[in-house]
Each structure stands twice: as structure tokens, then as C-alpha cells.
């Protein structure tokens, strides 16, 4: 088994998972801007304030265990009894963590009748797809950003907040490039030159 470092941050575990297990490692998201998303585990050697996964698992918080910090401290003591590592500033961390199961990158191609059509690139399994998605699937704050040509990132997965797991489907619209006056001027210059060449004036 590869050695996987586990920080205290990662101990907000899946309360629905069988006892003594941790969420499956997921590939890093390409878009860290998604609220609540963070890399759940990482590979590599242990840093001074990290504990081996095996030790952490043995004392990981159980269902309903409110004191994640205590459990994590227990893991540290078992792993390095002679060492008193510094407690990170963020400890204990109860901020939400999103574990993606499926991700797409999408582009809106049409909007009509309370839905929008989009072309999707499947970032999980590969391949191209098309979709009709109800506007209700987009947060009210983001709905104003839906335009033909808008780009978005869609994540389906589960989120844990303080050990409580919930399923999520989250569509986040990205800032699309905007056409500027300078772009339009350059386009006009190109059009004028070509139209003169083609004797269209």
C-alpha cells in the first residue's frame, strides 16, 4: 500500500462510510474555485506534522463523533508518541469538503423554456456529450450568467460538512471572455481589408 499522508484537515470523514474507512481518493479538480472543494488526500512522504494513514484510521472519528479534533489528536499520539506536533491554525477544520464522482466542462449552446442546452466534455470518463439542463439546477446567483457561449463546470459528488454527508450537483459558471471595442475594431479592420480584396465595397 502506498504511503499516503493524511492531514488533520482530511479527517472530516464520510459518516455513511463503513466504520474505519475513509473516502476514496479522488483526482484533483481542475477548478479549485468550486466552493467547498479541496483535495481529500495526497501522495508522498510524511511531513513532520502528518501521521500515517493506518494510524489515523485506527482512531478516526466514528459516526456521530462531534469532536473530530480529539480523534485526530489521538491519531497523532499513536503515530508519534514522543512528538508534539504544532497544531495547524485551521485545526479543527469543519469546513465543507466536496468529493467529486463526476465532472464535466460545458458550454451553453441554447436557452429556452426554462432550460439550457450545452455541449459537455466528460472530465471523468472522457468523451463528448450534449445535455438539456433545467435552470433550477443552477444557483439563483449564477443564473444571470447563463448566456449562449457561457462556460461552466459541473460537479456531481458528495460533500461532507462536520462529518455529515450530502449528495451535491453543482454547476458553476465561469467568467467568459468578453468582446471589447478593441476586438471589434480589429475585426472591422480585417473585414475592411478582406472586403476590399474581394471587391465587395
Amino acid at each position: 500500500m502506498p504511503r499516503i499522508g493524511l492531514t488533520a484537515t482530511n479527517l472530516a470523514t464520510d459518516s455513511n462510510a463503513p466504520e474505519g474507512t475513509l473516502p476514496s481518493p479522488q483526482p484533483p479538480s481542475v477548478l479549485p474555485s468550486i466552493p467547498g472543494y479541496r483535495l481529500p488526500v495526497r501522495s508522498g512522504t510524511l511531513a513532520p506534522n502528518e501521521v500515517p494513514m493506518e494510524a489515523a484510521v485506527s482512531s478516526a472519528p466514528k459516526d456521530g463523533d462531534a469532536n473530530v479534533a480529539e480523534a485526530a489528536n489521538g491519531a497523532r499520539r499513536n503515530a508519534f508518541p514522543a512528538v508534539r506536533p504544532e497544531v495547524p491554525e485551521c485545526f479543527p477544520d469543519r469546513s465543507p469538503s466536496l468529493f467529486p464522482k463526476q465532472e464535466w466542462a460545458g458550454r451553453v449552446t441554447a436557452i429556452a423554456n426554462g432550460t439550457f442546452d450545452a455541449r459537455l466534455r466528460d472530465l471523468t470518463g472522457g468523451g463528448r456529450e450534449v445535455a438539456t439542463i433545467d435552470l433550477e439546477e443552477v444557483s439563483p446567483e449564477d443564473r444571470g450568467r447563463i448566456r449562449v457561449g457561457s462556460l461552466f463546470h459541473w460537479v456531481m459528488g458528495y460533500e461532507t460538512i462536520s462529518g455529515t454527508r450530502s449528495n451535491v450537483s453543482r454547476i458553476v459558471f465561469l467568467n467568459s471572455p468578453r468582446m471589447t471595442e478593441r476586438d471589434l475594431k480589429a475585426g472591422q479592420d480585417w473585414a475592411d481589408r478582406l472586403r476590399a480584396k474581394w471587391n465587395l465595397d
Binding site: 458550454r107 449562449v148 457561449g149 471572455p177 468582446m179 480589429a186 475585426g187 472591422q188 475592411d192 472586403r195
Partner: peptide
């Protein structure tokens, strides 16, 4: 071939807007 269409098409290509 109109100036209007060609200008906007070139501007869209320049900005990378995906159409």
C-alpha cells in the same frame, strides 16, 4: 460577406468566444 458579419466573426475569433 457583409462588413457587419465579418467584423463580428473576426472579433469573436480574436476573443476566443466559443461559437
Amino acid at each position: 460577406g457583409s462588413r457587419e458579419f465579418m467584423s463580428v466573426a473576426a472579433a469573436l475569433a480574436r476573443t476566443g468566444l466559443p461559437d
